[in-house]
Design a protein around this nucleic acid. Structure first.
Length: 791
DNA sequence: TTAGGATTTG
């Protein structure tokens, strides 16, 4: 059966039409609805989840009530009870539904009325119909489905038209005991679905909304798929037909018949795509707006914690949520089960390995071996075992509230970290499977693909037990180490035909010249590696320190009092949204989404400009969108902030402009890029149209090289080539920092005698610097890179 | 029916 959802073009139209294009003549009704026969209809019963079906035998003209609203009356005959004395009933339709029904309905159509109210019919004596009539309206959450035999315009296929119910949503501070309601809420806390002690899965969800009321819901379902697909705090849910009860003096939500949910990403600007297992649901433009409003409210009124921890950021003794991929799993005993997972980063502490029988370990052997230094063992207990067993190798998981337990082994003083998912569901402890479409999974997948597996196989980081597994005997191991010591840990990317020159010869020669050398790295500066990253202007050749994030925060705070100028909103080349925070100082935030061909692009391709945002908000947006430009309003255009602040953020990288060389232009200049065929939003292009000379991130280090004939200091000036790490990314990437630290440990292993240091093959050039009367020769490393088996 | 938020103690 093929359903087509015809979305209303304008938000003003409150109904949605569903048409069947091909297939059977009968349309399935929402599964929570139960059929009620005419003879069973009795006053005083709840017909919220019931429906009555009959043929239209009579209809009255559409009229208006005194208050101006529409009213429409039809008579339905119960075809199953055609021989009963009373076989017809009046249906009174109010409001917008009346108008819609009058428009589409014809005599002979089959009419389904769902979620109605039953009242005494004042005309029963005269018309001889049922003693009660049905009352139907959008406000009551009613639904009307009309089946018709009429042919459609093009083909004579069976078409059915239904007027979908319009739902009324109750704010969380207006909930009453014993009612069944529809509601929206922002997830403040949740327990991912787990196996209850009864027959169903259970999920506990606590919601908040702008009324500031809180509601904890206990949801049960035998079908895992029909529980809300919540992945993180801050997600937004829409619940239909949730029952409200009082428990311990507080309102509580609980699943009732016909419960249905939609879940949305709570991030401002993210696509509004509902997550649901239901194939048939209503979602109107109006509701789209509700989601956007809730997102904006949450962004300014709730503190939703940042990204979850990576293995590289594990803090011993604490609990954390981990987004990861399942590589292996194994049975341990009746009450515990082992999951082997990775997230591409390396845990900085020694971690335990749970001993299991090789035959019990499920997963691809080759991959398990290849990733052995990056995977961690998570032991899950009790109620989590059943779910853990059912997980598929390769799937992406979010494991909530893992305990990083610090422990030491009896025979060793060295402590290690153990990962436990204890029994119970306190603090949302549990396991959730994330779909591949999840943005966090997409990001993780891309990262996992970028991980160079050679990184983790550095001999330095292996224990002797692990080495024993690779080298079958001690002789093998020794010869491997010797080979490592003789081979160069760096290689030339050019000039391989040149012969080596001794350092003594170079020191005694005039500059400028170029040499190939073979030397050892005795020491280097700075020892604190983060200090070697600088910003470089290639126009004026100046070097600057990378500003601290707090500088940027201050600039943002300083510009916050300049309120966004509404006259600059929604131009031909960008769409704007603005809202005001509700806590403390009322702060106005505006986001301008740059369009292409009058359309918004996917977030990952979108450039946006933000006014009034905090550091946290700006950083969050830059992770989701391609480019973020912080701006402020003037009278006639948006402008960049002070050049001490980044003029552009991409992912976690902040790009700065040279204060000496830049002449910032108005933001309007960007519209020329937006109009391009395929705006690529490249840093250099954006900088150019904005009149900015961008500063480049570089590694600057001083290497003290020795070769037995002499020692010289050579500078390393590198964007990416030498370490094979982009200088722009290392400051915000733990993994790259570890990688660089490991590389330096290999080039210059701490605590080694000179004779035990590895050889470096380098290309250097000498040059003259004259500072006043002082003349000096300097050396710089170039066309050299760290050897592949080192990084 | 189940759970009803508020870390296991392996």
């Amino acid at each position: 059966m093929l359903w087509k959802l015809c979305h209303p073009k304008k938000a003003a139209m409150p109904v949605q039409l569903l048409k069947i294009i091909k297939g059977e003549s009968e349309t399935p009704l929402p599964s929570h609805l139960q059929k009620e026969d005419l003879k069973c209809l009795q006053e005083g019963f709840d017909y919220t989840n019931k429906y009555f079906q009959g043929a239209v035998i009579l209809s009255y003209p559409l009229t208006k009530l005194r208050d101006g609203s529409d009213f429409f009356k039809v008579v339905l005959q119960d075809l199953n009870n055609s021989c009963s004395r009373i076989n017809s009933i009046n249906v009174l339709i109010y409001g917008k539904m009346a108008e819609d029904c009058a428009k589409v309905m014809r005599h002979g159509d089959t009419f389904v009325v769902a979620g109605f109210k039953l009242s005494k019919s004042p005309t029963a004596r005269e018309d001889g119909r049922h003693g009660c009539h049905l009352e139907v309206s959008e406000e009551a959450g009613s639904g009307i489905y009309i089946y018709t035999k009429r042919s459609t315009s093009a083909a004579s296929e069976t078409a059915s038209v239904s007027v979908a119910p319009k739902y009324v949503y109750t704010p969380l501070n207006h909930l009453k005991d014993g009612t069944v309601v529809n509601l929206y809420g922002i997830v403040k806390f949740f327990k991912p679905p787990y196996v209850s002690k009864g027959t169903d899965y259970c999920s506990v969800v606590t919601l908040v909304d702008p009324s500031n009321a809180k509601l904890t819901c206990t949801l049960f379902s035998g079908n895992l798929d029909s529980l809300p697909k919540i992945y993180k705090i801050g997600d937004i849910v829409r619940f239909h037909r949730i029952k409200i009860r009082e428990y311990n003096g507080q309102m509580q939500g609980i699943t009732s018949g016909g419960f249905a949910s939609l879940t949305f990403d709570g991030t401002v600007g993210a696509p509004v795509v509902p997550r649901t297992s239901s194939k048939l649901y209503t979602f109107l433009d109006e509701e789209h707006k509700t989601i956007e409003e809730l997102r904006a409210w949450a962004a300014s009124n709730l503190s939703i914690s940042g990204p979850a921890a990576k293995l590289s950021g594990v803090q011993p003794m604490l609990f954390f949520d981990l987004t990861c991929q399942l590589v292996g799993k194994a049975r341990v005993d009746g009450s515990s089960f082992l999951l082997k997972v990775w997230d591409g980063t390396k845990c900085p502490y020694p971690t335990w390995k749970v001993p299991v029988e090789a035959r019990d370990l499920e997963g691809e052997k080759g991959l398990l071996h290849q990733l052995r230094h990056l995977t961690v063992d998570i032991l899950v207990y009790d109620n989590h075992v059943q779910l853990a067993k059912s997980l598929k190798i390769g799937s992406f998981l979010r494991i909530y509230s893992i305990h990083a337990k610090q422990a030491s082994t009896d025979n060793q003083d060295v402590s290690h970290v153990e990962f436990h998912l204890h029994g119970g569901t306190c603090y949302g402890r549990g396991i959730g499977v994330l779909p591949e479409s999840n943005p966090d999974v997409k990001e993780l997948k891309a990262f996992l693909e970028s991980v160079d597996l050679a990184d983790s196989q550095n001999v330095e980081s292996m224990s002797s037990v692990e080495l024993d597994g690779i080298f079958s005997n001690v002789t093998d191991l020794q010869s491997h180490l010797q080979r490592c010591q003789q081979l160069s840990v760096t290689v030339l990317t050019d000039h391989q035909d040149l012969n080596n020159t001794e350092l003594k010869t170079i020191l005694n020669s005039t500059a400028p010249q170029q040499y190939r050398i073979r030397a050892k790295l005795r020491t280097f500066k700075p020892q604190k590696l983060h200090q070697c990253i600088k910003l470089f202007c290639s126009r004026c050749n100046s070097l600057k320190e990378v500003p601290d994030g707090s500088d940027f925060d201050l600039i943002l705070q300083d510009s916050a009092p300049t309120a966004p100028n509404p006259e600059l909103h929604n131009t031909s080349w960008y769409d704007s949204v603005m809202w005001t925070t509700q806590h403390q100082k009322q702060r106005k935030i505006a986001i301008h989404f740059v369009k292409h061909d009058e359309m918004l692009q996917e977030p990952e391709d979108t450039l946006l400009m933000i006014e009034g945002g905090t550091l946290k908000e700006v950083s969050k947006l830059s992770r989701r969108f391609k480019c973020v430009i912080p701006v402020r309003s003037t009278e006639d255009d948006l402008e960049l902030l002070d050049l001490s602040a980044p003029f552009l953020l991409q992912g976690s990288v902040k790009y700065y402009g040279c204060k000496q060389c830049s002449t910032p232009k108005t933001i309007k200049s960007l519209s020329s890029l937006a109009a391009e065929q395929r705006p690529s939003w490249e840093l250099t292009e954006i900088a150019q149209v904005l009149g900015i000379v961008p500063l480049q991130y570089v590694f600057i280090m001083k290497f003290t090289l020795v070769d037995g004939t002499g020692a010289l200091n050579a500078y390393l000036f590198d964007y990416e080539k030498f370490f094979q790490i982009p200088a722009s990314e290392i400051l915000t990437n733990d993994f790259l920092q570890q990688k660089m630290q490991m590389t330096m440990n290999t080039l210059c292993p701490p605590g080694r005698k000179l004779g035990d240091l590895p050889w470096l093959e380098c290309f250097i050039k000498s040059y003259n610097i004259t500072d006043g009367m002082k003349h000096q020769v300097y050396y710089q490393i170039f066309d050299t890179t760290v050897a592949e088996d080192v990084v």
